[in-house]
């Protein structure tokens, strides 16, 4: 039971990030709802973001990324917001044109 008394390290944060990342990927691969896929993308970006802030934290490593990591995380958040806006617009447009939001129906470019 000594895992509650020992300080956590960088690896633990990376593992949580990896878990969120994989959950996002699985979400993207299994949801048929366009919005579900968008949510998966958000999770993936979040998982990556945890890595940035964890590498930037002074609590885990002496030679941390410092401010750079935090700023990159901020940019990621902002870009995720922008991406969500555009993707949502695309999704709504798709819904207007096809009267469905099932991505499996969107295979007109199939070879």
């Amino acid at each position: 039971m000594n895992f509650l008394t020992e300080p956590v390290g960088l690896s633990h944060f990376l593992a949580v990030g990896a878990f969120l990342f994989v959950t996002g990927v699985v979400c993207m691969a299994t949801k048929r709802n366009t919005l579900g896929i968008l949510m998966g993308v958000e999770l993936v970006l979040n998982g990556a973001n945890i890595n940035f802030v964890a590498f930037a934290s002074p609590y885990f490593r002496e030679d941390n990324l410092g401010l750079e990591g935090n700023l990159l995380a901020l940019f990621v958040i902002v870009l995720a917001a922008a991406e969500a806006a555009v993707a949502l617009a695309i999704a709504l447009n798709y819904y207007n044109n096809h009267s469905t939001i099932d991505v499996d129906k969107a295979n007109e470019l199939k070879g």
Binding site: V25, M28, A29, T30, K31, R32, I37, V103, D104, A106, N107, E108, L109, K110, G111
Partner: peptide, 18 residues
């Protein structure tokens, strides 16, 4: 054969990436 790769399914493309 290459045509088969272009399934047009978004979810499969995600799988390809991973």
């Amino acid at each position: 054969a290459l045509r088969g790769m272009q399934t047009g399914s978004l979810r499969q493309y995600v799988m390809f990436i991973v």
